[in-house]
Design a protein around this nucleic acid. Sequence first.
DNA 1: GCGACAG
DNA 2: ATCTTGTCGC
Length: 221
Amino acid sequence: MSRSFDYRRAMRVQRILAEKVFESLKNPPQLNNIRYVAGVDAAFYDGRIIGVAALIEYETHRLVEYSVVEKEIPIPYVPGLLAFREAPAYTAAILKLSREPDVLMVDGHGVSHPRGLGIASHLGLVLDKPSIGVAKKKLYGEETIINGEHYLKAHGIIAAKIIIHRGKKLYVSMGYRISLKQAVEIAMKLLEPKYNLPIPTHIADQLSKRIRNERRKRKIK
DNA sequence: GCGACAG
DNA sequence: ATCTTGTCGC
């Protein structure tokens, strides 16, 4: 299929799409009555990506349903272009769910990205759904401290908040159509003492790895 | 040239 | 992300 990928063109596309994202962050409509949060993550095997979307009930943290999608890996990992490698699988997985999530949670950054279009923002824009990025490492931005709280400033705005959970840093960033305030509120409410990541993304991570390992055993292709 | 660099 | 076993500790 895609034997050649134009990386420079992909970066230009990101700069253009980022305008839509920043516009959506202008006056983020307050999200009320959040029922479901969909967390996505992926595992890799034999040149393929196994994307999983886990639908979690916001109030109970319970897994309601999940979907799995397997595809050929589009391009190798390149910092800043993660969305072109993993977003297609996530998009398909989310559209496979029988219920529609109110918010999307992605393992990666949102606007705290070199061009303001991290995978969380990319996915939210594509699916026209509010999204949050929760990453384990910093990608881009200047660390700033405000009233003792740590943030990541990027593109002239406070793009992410750095919180510590279980002794480890978590970068919670605005993805699409959401305020940092609410993104942090939602992410923190979904944290549990036993796991490093918020429930949605943690469950998706575990499911993707479990499914990958099962397929290895059974030699299924 | 050097440092940074999501998953 | 992935390659990989046992081992230390609660």
